[in-house]
């Protein structure tokens, strides 16, 4: 559920700019995101959408612009001004990051339970039984059978790995989750199951999500608002169904018309 008209957005992105040599990967991107709101960033490869996500997560340093976040204490802070300690603590408690490539988002040599438990141990939980019970609970919520808790993700299918990533991220009840093409590379039926699960968890937990996708159907299913990017710029933004059903920009019309049935 969206908390209506909060005084401060959860996330404020302002003028984010990143150059790689002469190429502008992101050119003055700005938007706000409220608690519980799902924003899809759509565009083709090279549009700058993944760079935008990396900039927001602080994994890539911006040439210009700011990312501000309303912390759990209610104060909105410029993430670049946070200490490394505070930023990392934020990333592993109040934020999540679900990666396209599960091997980048999971510890492949660690069991599923250990993967889910890591964030708990990271915030100081030192009770094995409790950590394991929480891990089992989260595995159930992402439909991974309890008898797989001690298997490493190397023995999991692509869809299971993504579900494990989601559990691993959500275990600390974050308020903001970044997702980078979480369903690409999966079979269609596996995608549908994963999307449905994400949709359910997002609604149930009131998560704010920024999801980067090239798949307009994913954007339609999951997001409230959409940001269409091309060449590092925002081409069009608005209510998801409005942008997809009544696109204004030439590029968005091209994008929408290129899809079989969004």
């Amino acid at each position: 559920m969206i908390e209506p008209l909060l005084p401060e957005p959860l996330l404020t992105v302002d003028g984010l700019t990143k150059r790689y040599g002469r190429r502008l990967a992101c050119d003055g991107i700005g938007f706000t995101l409220d608690a519980g709101e799902v924003l899809a960033v759509v565009g083709e490869s090279g549009s700058g959408k993944s760079t935008l996500l990396s900039l927001i997560a602080g994994e890539v340093t911006a040439d210009a612009g700011t990312v501000s976040y309303r912390m759990r204490d209610g104060a909105t802070r410029d993430l670049a001004a946070l200490s490394v300690v505070d930023r990392r603590a934020l990333m592993r408690t109040d934020w999540g990051f679900v990666r396209q490539d599960a091997t980048q988002g999971l510890r492949m040599a660690v069991s599923a339970g250990g993967n889910v438990g890591e964030r708990l141990m990271g915030v100081g939980d030192r009770h094995y039984g409790r950590i394991r019970a929480t891990a089992l609970d989260w595995l159930a919520r992402v439909e991974i059978a309890p008898d797989r808790v001690d298997d490493p993700p190397t023995r999991f299918s692509g869809g299971m790995r993504q579900r494990l990533q989601i559990a691993r991220n959500l275990v600390t009840a974050p308020r903001l989750v970044l997702m980078d093409e979480p369903t690409s590379g999966l079979d269609v039926s596996v995608q549908a199951r994963l999307l449905d699960m994400i949709r359910g968890l997002v609604a149930e937990l009131g998560l704010a999500v920024i999801i980067v996708t090239h798949d307009l159907a994913v954007a339609r299913l999951l997001s409230h608002r959409v940001l269409v990017m091309r060449g590092g710029r925002v081409i069009e933004t608005g209510l998801t169904d409005q942008v997809l059903d009544d696109p204004q920009a030439a590029y968005t019309q091209l994008l929408v018309s290129s899809v079989l049935a969004a």
């Binding site: 490394v84 300690v85 990392r88 510890r107 660690v110 069991s111 339970g113 250990g114 438990g117 890591e118 964030r119 708990l120 141990m121 990271g122 915030v123 100081g124 030192r126 094995y128 950590i131 394991r132 808790v149 001690d150």
Partner: peptide, 17 residues
């Protein structure tokens, strides 16, 4: 940063196994 949660992941894996 004294982020030692990972060390406990190793011990967790031990107990799990």
């Amino acid at each position: 940063l004294a982020e030692y949660g990972l060390m406990h992941v190793k011990l967790y894996e031990d107990i799990a196994r």
